[in-house]
């Protein structure tokens, strides 16, 4: 499986990941290599195998519906890039 620079750009956009133009080819090469490695999976028949999402066949535990969190806005906003009037600020969102 080989990916083109164009493929890399599409995937990178989906992941909102900036990649320098001069590096695109090298990513395409590395990613193609990874996909070749991964392609070995097709050598085994898995038709009747149940996918395994977690190692232990555990069940989701449920939490009681009780408020346990206090307001920590100040602490959280202290590590935020840009805040004002209690809000996180981002470039204008157009709907």
């Amino acid at each position: 499986m080989s990916l083109t620079a164009d493929d890399v750009n599409k995937i990178a956009y989906l992941a909102r990941l900036g990649i320098d133009t001069q590096d695109t080819e090298s990513y395409a090469k590395d990613l193609s290599g990874m996909l070749d490695l991964v392609a070995q999976m097709s050598t085994v028949d898995t038709d009747n195998v149940v996918p395994m999402a977690h190692p232990l066949g555990q069940v989701q535990r449920l939490r009681p519906d009780q408020v346990s969190e206090e307001n920590q806005r100040e602490a959280f906003h202290a590590i935020a890039p840009q805040v004002e009037a209690g809000l996180f600020l981002v470039p204008k969102v157009i709907e």
């Binding site: 991964v38 999976m41 097709s42 085994v44 898995t46 195998v49 149940v50 996918p51 395994m52 999402a53």
Partner: peptide
């Protein structure tokens, strides 16, 4: 497919 291999 990978999750199935994981099972195997």
């Amino acid at each position: 497919k990978a999750q199935k291999i994981r099972r195997l």
